[in-house]
Design a protein around this nucleic acid. Sequence first.
DNA 1: TGCGATGTTCGACAAACGACGAACGTAGCT
DNA 2: AGCTACGTTCGTCGTTTGTCGAACATCGCA
Lengths: 132, 132
Amino acid sequence: MARSTRRRPAPAHPATEEIDLYDVLHALSDPTRMTIVRVLRTEPERACGTFPVDVAPSTLSHHFKVLRESGVISQREEANRRFSALRTVDLERRFPGLLDTVLAALARNEPGGGPAGEESGHEPGSDKARHG
Amino acid sequence: MARSTRRRPAPAHPATEEIDLYDVLHALSDPTRMTIVRVLRTEPERACGTFPVDVAPSTLSHHFKVLRESGVISQREEANRRFSALRTVDLERRFPGLLDTVLAALARNEPGGGPAGEESGHEPGSDKARHG
DNA sequence: TGCGATGTTCGACAAACGACGAACGTAGCT
DNA sequence: AGCTACGTTCGTCGTTTGTCGAACATCGCA
């Protein structure tokens, strides 16, 4: 009976108070996931398969899982689609200003960056700095 | 070359403009490294071996390398000691507000946390917010 | 009832990560 | 010179990560 309303296991989200900073930082330290977050920033929610990232569906699912379990996004089921949304309110309550600051930093990180495909923009730096 | 003035290879730092956001976020996503950053936040600089983390010297050296190569800290040689300092100015120029926001978030992440010794706040194997 | 679209789970794999001990090099003692 | 303190580098080990393909499950539609 209850089987008809929820066949798939409901996606697990951490409570707001349980969002871990290290998990969030780790989730945001991947370009593919960051692309997802950036896109989600401009829209209330979006279906999984419609993100401008070129990875296999299984890989994408993995990234969504990381984002969800870290508390960065929430996922809602509708039919056989899963819509993702940024947990902006929860994130703001838990770590005020973090998301905004990181996304502002992202804009500076890739000045001419396109929305996707820059997974390889990760070169080892050269050495030219001094002790400040 | 001037072999007498520089026996050990000088520690390589990325230039301010080359600090990569993903590298920084990854560097900050580790509790041991975050402890180093937090301590460095309260002091201008500090010798490597004097940080309140209980890992092997080689491990510590590895973490310092990650922090240095990501642009989070700088290292200065003095005798056979190496002093580390936060690159607050460079970081602020590159990613304004990022360091402050993350450290403020860190304070919220561990409300009762002392300045050190809580490396065990992130045990492998026991996942934290397993929201069922 | 079958089919296509949408996502997830599983298993595999290479690469990276964090940790350690051992060995090494330099500086400052005694 | 010998010794100690400090920190790095190297090799190794086990775990985690990101990726993929294959298989599976659900829903909507013909």
